[in-house]
């Protein structure tokens, strides 16, 4: 968490930032910026002119350097930042460290008093987790359900967002408001009726939805749909209409314009929606607890299998938690810049 000099963007700015930082404390009463005037010779012309025009020239010399790196910070800020970010990092990292270190301990070391530094290291828990509960099957189930739900959700949301972003039609407002407002309904409100609905559909048509992966896929994809549509529509809005209209003039057709122009241009938004949908499906607990059976059980419920034995195998629990987290955390961290970009376009208008 060591910090360098804030934004030494170029050679000229480093040169001017150094004196600026050192004089910052006294800058308020420094005489009309003689030192700043000399450094500003190297600064971009536009900036220098603007600075001179404000309030009779080079007032507050020290700030002239700060103008180019707006966050070139006083010492109080730097120390506040150091302390607060360290505390936050400890808060964020401690459980992660415990997860990792405990997963490498033998069982007797996790049942006794906690130790920061493991006394013995073993990879045994990573071998045992597959035996204690059928973790492989849970893994496969979670993957099938999450991948299918993500794929469907992204495709359906793309179509809907295209309509919302590019067309005016009657009922548009009703649609968007209704869809978005479902986001705030408590999941518990849907749980019982959906449970009954799937049971009754099964009774009436013979399609065994209840307990099947299909029911979970259907549920998850719909639950991620509202935010996905909203984010994607925002993203489409940020793409100039001329682009897809030109494609339509060239004879692409509305869908051609969508797939050849909008979808490639909106890749960050689509990736963001995909991450969101996959993470939601991978982590969902409430519906998985009711709508799965022994065969279709997903990780969210399956992991509790280590805790229901007479003894809790904490080292295996930690190892299994780590194993199921690694793929999703890695994917998330690799793609998070898309998520930031997607959120920026979708939510900040």
């Amino acid at each position: 968490m060591s910090e360098g000099v804030p934004t030494p963007a170029s050679a000229t700015s480093t040169a001017s930032a150094a004196p600026a930082a050192s004089t910052r404390g006294a800058s308020a009463d420094s005489p009309r910026g003689a030192p700043a005037a000399s450094t500003r010779g190297a600064a971009p012309d536009r900036l220098g002119r603007r600075a001179r025009r404000t309030a009779g020239g080079a007032r507050r010399s020290g700030r002239a350097g700060a103008a180019r790196s707006p966050m070139a910070a006083p010492v109080s800020f730097l120390w506040t930042r150091r302390i607060l970010l360290t505390l936050l990092a400890v808060f964020a990292a401690t459980p992660l460290y415990v997860m990792l270190s405990s997963s490498l301990k033998p069982l007797q070391d996790v049942t006794g008093s906690f130790r920061w530094i493991p006394a013995h290291l073993t990879i045994r828990p990573y071998l045992d987790i597959w035996e204690t509960v059928p973790l492989g099957r849970y893994f496969l189930n979670s993957f099938i359900v999450s991948a299918a739900a993500t794929l469907c959700s992204v495709v359906v949301a793309t179509f809907a967002a295209y309509a919302v972003s590019r067309y005016r039609f009657r009922g548009k407002r009703v649609f968007t408001v209704t869809v978005l407002s479902t986001q705030m309904f408590p999941g518990i409100l849907f749980l019982l009726p959906l449970f009954l609905l799937f049971v009754n559909i099964g009774n009436a048509t013979g399609i065994a939805l209840y307990g099947s992966r299909g029911a979970l896929i259907l549920t998850y994809m719909t639950f991620t749909l509202p935010l996905s549509i909203w984010m994607l529509a925002g993203y489409f809005d940020s793409i100039p209409r001329d682009l897809d209209e030109a494609a339509q003039v060239d004879g692409c057709g509305a869908l051609g314009a969508l797939f050849r122009v909008l979808v490639p241009a909106a890749t960050p938004g689509i990736v963001a929606v995909g991450i969101y949908a996959f993470m939601t499906a991978w982590g969902e607990v409430l519906f998985a607890s009711v709508m799965t059976n022994d065969v279709t059980r997903t990780l969210s419920i399956g992991l509790q299998g280590y805790s229901t034995q007479t003894e809790v195998y904490w080292n295996q629990v930690m190892a299994a938690s780590l194993v199921v987290s690694v793929p999703i955390v890695a994917g998330f961290l690799l793609l998070q810049r898309y998520l930031v970009a997607g959120l920026t376009a979708g939510s900040v208008k």
């Binding site: 607990v285 199921v324 987290s325």
Partner: peptide, 8 residues
């Protein structure tokens, strides 16, 4: 995933 975090 929620469950992994909360179990930890």
């Amino acid at each position: 995933p929620v469950y992994a975090a909360v179990i930890t």
